[in-house]
Design a protein around this nucleic acid. Structure first.
Lengths: 122, 122
DNA sequence: CGTCAATATGCGCAAAAATACATGTGTAAA
DNA sequence: TTTACACATGTATTTTTGCGCATATTGACG
């Protein structure tokens, strides 16, 4: 059980691509359809060069696919299941991380582990 | 469909935490059990300060929980479902990204979209 | 109380990554 | 072929982030 069954090296580059808010916004803007870059620019309100920059990273990671149609380049997800996975992940996040835009938490997320002795996990 | 249903702002910080290979390795080293930091250090072969550094980030993200037992601090996942989600993600990655440690791909992952006219998505 | 082991933190640095700006490329139409 | 539009790329700059080192804190023990 050294690292063969550990998804670290496999998932890390994908998570690194998905960690960028603008890239996630681009994926969401795409949804399940193919859309030209101009649409993405309008949907995300990002400058064109920035959108192209992120699209390249998404493309090289295999998270989007590009096809030219005339003078437009359409981008789409290679698999709609990716959106489903993202949403299930989102559901988990909603349930387990109170560190959102919520005004305040119970203060349990920023304690120093040196301070507690709860002992409920063992 | 502006950004309320878009998981960008919600998932981005979590992905950012998960994007670090050593942090994923720590999560994998934890598995479903609670283990003291020393165990994690041995399992990951990382220097102690580095492990503590990453553990803090994981803790503040709500991805691990810390409990002191005597002079040891045990870390564990707040929810075993996280591992399941990671594995489903891994399954998806295996199927959709040939950009792994594979010696070579079909060359379809680094093409410039300016070069192609496949037209199979419309 | 002094010491040791376990763990956390502050700081400086180096590497990486994101953004903006300028520019290049390709395609369609005049 | 010239112009205009859609998109990509290269470069410089700034910000972020991971790491190592030294050090501080905490608890067990004598």
């Amino acid at each position: 059980m050294s690292e063969a069954s550990c998804p670290a090296r496999l998932l890390s580059p994908i998570f690194k691509v998905l960690a960028e808010p603008n890239r996630l916004a681009i994926l969401c803007a795409l949804g399940t359809e193919c859309r030209p870059v101009t649409d993405i620019i309008h949907a995300t309100k990002l400058p064109q060069t920035n959108v192209s920059f992120h699209l390249r990273i998404l493309r090289e990671a295999g998270l989007v696919r590009a096809e030219r149609r005339g003078s437009f380049v359409y981008y789409c997800l290679p698999d709609p299941e990716l959106l489903a996975i993202l949403q299930s992940f989102q559901a988990w996040a909603r349930a387990h991380t109170p560190m959102l835009t919520l005004v305040e938490g119970d203060g349990n997320d920023n304690i120093s582990p040196t301070k507690r002795r709860t002992r409920s996990c063992g």
